[in-house]
Design a binder for these strands. Structure first.
Length: 428
RNA sequence: GGAGACGUGGCCGAGCCAGGUUGAAGGCGCUUCCCUGCUAAGGAAGUAACGUCGUAAGGCGUUCGUGGGUUCAAAUCCCACCGUCUCCGCCA
């Protein structure tokens, strides 16, 4: 969430930021109004508490001195104050909850240099690499057809057991999947600590990243135990140090995780339902970092570079987009997407989203750091990026590398991860 | 799932049974200063976070796992929950 102080000192700046996303600015006014009332009530409450504390001390002293009569008098007064205090406390609590509720729904402020615009059409194409002018006919077969033909993707049976928008990989297809995961992890092992977090988490953990309360409909909820299936490893990784104060020396912290990711895709029913374009459960290697504000810009570049290099080395046509304000997810201030061109599906597939979340998540999850030799603490910056969103990369490979004879060649960098396999042969 | 023990500051650890000058003894660690050729040892002082008011100094408030309750007053009493450990049960 945003810093409440900003609403006091410069509400117009907050409104401008909210407007750049195309969100409703009236929430800003509500926060300012509620916060002002909260402080009035809070101050009065604190004054009364102070008085009660003073009286209580006197009562204790009087009892020790054996002056019970005088004590009784003060107790009565204190009790009266207590009733007033209770009312004010309740009022303050209600206001506090309202402010927090409003703040939880307000998205992060886009970075100043994030492109203007409210829709994905406003995204700025930073670069396009490796795109061919013309793709061969044998590449223009969508991966769901290739997958079925080669027996490596079994969507029908996945649907039989789990419903639409689930997938099942088989044989060399499953092997390709695990190869991609290991490839994605190994490339970043030089600097990133691998984590295998829980993939089912508590409500607070989901709030920390900004996935709740606003996007409740998009997540799977296990009601019996009040747990949520994570939509991305970003969720548990953010919570890894929730509530902690880190040493500046420990920053930047680099983490990576491979997990399954679960998404209800409530708003996308009937869209992109073919093959692996959009599935409820998928594998992803996530890159993650906590760092100081000073380190953040370099870290943003680093994660983007690592994610893009992984795609580039697979030989896939791809482009990098600088997302327009309105297309940046709630927690992000600046986001670059990497999209792979899938010649069979004939479309760009988002395979990575690299976001700089400034202090937005740190405030929600209460993650701070201490600067060497300085008093007090600051909130860390958090950044995340998909190192490799497996199904869509899988799709890009299967379509791009399909040969004229119907076989699929394995990109060279992946061959060591597939026991030297060079191609998935066409059925005889 | 059942039984028991426990959860205190950066760490260790007292306080809880007998509620009150306890934001919390003592120790360790850390910072500054003194002493010292250097280091070690020794001496002195300091050493939480957050909120709020204030230009500041500082004031006030909150925090002893979390949330409620009792009381003039809660680390201390009561209730619920969470977590840790031990034993039993179940189990990949």
């Amino acid at each position: 969430m945003l810093d409440i102080k900003l609403f006091r000192t410069d509400p117009e700046a907050v409104k401008t930021a909210v407007a750049r996303r195309g969100d409703d600015t009236s929430a800003v006014d509500r926060v300012v109004e509620l916060d002002s009332r909260l402080r009035t009530v809070g101050t009065e409450r604190d004054n009364i508490r102070s008085e009660i504390n003073g009286l209580s001390k006197q009562v204790g002293q009087l009892h020790r001195d054996g002056k019970g009569d005088e004590a009784a008098e003060l107790q009565t007064r204190s009790k009266e104050l207590g009733e007033r205090e209770k009312l004010l406390s309740e009022e303050a609590e209600v206001l506090q909850d309202k402010v927090r509720h409003e703040l939880l729904y307000i998205a992060n402020m886009p970075a100043d240099d994030a492109p203007d615009g409210l829709t994905e059409d406003d995204n700025v194409v930073v670069r396009v690499e490796n795109l061919q002018d013309e793709y061969a006919d044998h590449q223009k077969v969508p991966h769901w057809e290739v997958g079925e033909e080669l027996g490596i993707l079994d969507v029908d049976r996945a649907v039989k057991m789990s419903g639409s928008m689930f997938a099942m990989y088989r044989g060399a297809g499953a092997h390709l999947l695990s190869a991609l995961i290991t490839y994605g992890l190994d490339r970043n092992r030089d600097a990133f600590e691998q984590v295998r977090p829980p993939t089912v988490v508590k409500t607070d953990t989901m709030i920390g990243t900004g996935h709740l309360p606003k996007f409740e409909d998009d997540a799977y909820h296990l009601e019996r135990d009040d747990l949520w299936a994570i939509p991305t490893a970003e969720v548990p990784l953010t919570s890894l140090v929730a509530g902690e104060v880190l040493d500046a020396a420990a920053l930047p912290m680099r983490l990576m995780a491979h997990t399954s990711c679960y998404r209800r895709e409530a708003g996308s029913a009937g869209r992109d339902t073919r093959g692996l374009l959009r599935v409820h459960e998928f594998d992803k290697v996530e890159l993650y970092s906590f760092c100081t504000p000073e380190q953040a810009p370099d870290m943003h570049r680093e994660i983007l570079e690592r994610a893009e290099n992984a795609i580039r080395d697979l030989g896939l046509a791809h482009r990098v987009l600088d997302l327009a304000c309105g297309d940046i997810s709630g927690a992000g201030a600046r986001t670059y997407d990497i999209e792979v061109f899938a010649p069979g599906a004939d479309r760009w597939l988002e395979v990575s989203s690299v976001s700089w979340c400034t202090t937005y998540q740190a405030r929600r999850a209460n993650i701070r750091f201490r600067r060497e030799g300085e008093k007090g603490t600051d909130f860390v910056h958090s950044l995340n990026g998909s190192g490799l969103a497996v199904p869509r990369v899988w799709a890009g490979i299967v379509e791009t590398y399909r040969q004229a004879d119907g076989s699929v060649r394995i990109p060279e960098v992946l061959q060591p991860y597939m026991g030297g396999l060079t191609e998935i042969p066409a059925p005889s």
